[in-house]
């Protein structure tokens, strides 16, 4: 499969908890041949629905962190004064670096008059290639309080591309991260289509508008789907009108359906149950394939 023939779809939500992951898992099962990429690396949940068998596991290194060698430290305090991130604290007579607060900028490492600071690479988490009943899946887990999920997202996407080329699969489906910050930018740039899942709430509309602005900024076509639309039909109308005005395609709505939680409990995607919401998602999948 040459790269030009591979399409990439990312499922986003702005605000979390809108059903993005359940819908992504359903898409993966409905797609005939696709690679799944779990780019929601802050809270990767796709594996809870698709029970992947891990085939490869790799450490994920990113950036560096400063570490004081206590035996060489003269406790002059120059490092603490030069740190803009409040990452160096005095602890009695010693100085210590808070690894959580350290940005890895290297200033203390360069400035230490006693050369008592090391600057090793930082392990931030791990990434995996697995097989699932919907096909291959690339996913990752960041360490607790680890930084830099933007790079991990890029890595997951790159690995998904490699798998797609190797296994001749024409489609990559990414479960995107929440928010509009660096992980989202990393998951959005250069994709063929972004499907935005939203809810009919005041926050839903607000988040959607910010997300569509971001997609426009990166020239990515968008399609919008309102989940649990019947909770507030009026707000659903407003959201769809705003999305259309912003140039997004409007997809079928998904109704409020408790089977979504039932499916989760059974480690299944909604479309694997005989559920009303599953039928809505089937219609949406057909619309999405036409937009791709």
């Amino acid at each position: 499969m040459s790269k030009e023939h591979i399409r990439e779809l990312v499922v986003l939500s702005g605000k979390g908890g809108t059903g993005k992951t359940s819908i992504t898992a359903s898409f993966a099962l409905l797609a005939d041949k696709a690679v799944l990429a779990d780019c929601d690396v802050d809270a990767a949940d796709l594996h809870l629905l698709l029970t992947p068998m891990v085939e490869q596991r790799h450490a994920f290194m990113s950036g560096n962190e400063a570490v004081i060698r206590q035996q060489d430290c003269t406790a002059c305090g120059v490092c603490m004064d030069s740190c803009r991130f409040d990452a160096i604290r005095r602890d009695g007579a010693a100085y210590r670096i808070d690894p959580v607060a350290c940005e890895g900028c290297s200033v203390c490492y360069r400035i230490c008059p006693a050369k008592a600071i090391d600057f090793p690479e930082r392990v931030c988490g791990e990434w995996m290639v697995s097989s699932t009943r919907s096909g291959p899946m690339v996913h990752a887990q960041l360490g607790v309080a680890a930084e830099n999920s933007g790079k991990l997202v890029t890595m997951v996407r790159e690995q998904a591309w490699t798998v797609a080329v190797d296994k001749r699969l024409p489609l990559i489906i990414s479960d995107g991260p929440p928010g509009i910050g660096c992980p989202v930018i990393a998951s959005l740039s250069g994709v063929s289509l972004a499907v935005v899942i939203t809810e009919p709430t005041v926050s839903g509309l607000h988040d959607l508008q910010r997300l569509l602005a971001l997609a426009r900024h990166f020239s990515v076509p968008t399609a919008v789907c309102v989940n649990k639309w019947d909770i507030n039909p009026q707000q659903t109308e407003r959201i769809e009108a705003a999305a259309e005005a912003a140039g997004a395609a409007i997809l079928e709505r998904i109704r409020y359906d408790r089977s979504v939680t039932q499916a989760q409990l059974q480690q299944k995607a909604v479309v694997e149950l005989d559920a009303a919401a599953g039928n809505d998602i089937r219609v949406i999948w057909k619309q999405v394939t036409e937009l791709l």
Binding site: D42, A43, V100, L142, V144, A145, E147, P178
Partner: peptide, 8 residues
Amino acid sequence: PGTSCPVV
């Protein structure tokens, strides 16, 4: 949401 740098 999440557990990464902004939460910290």
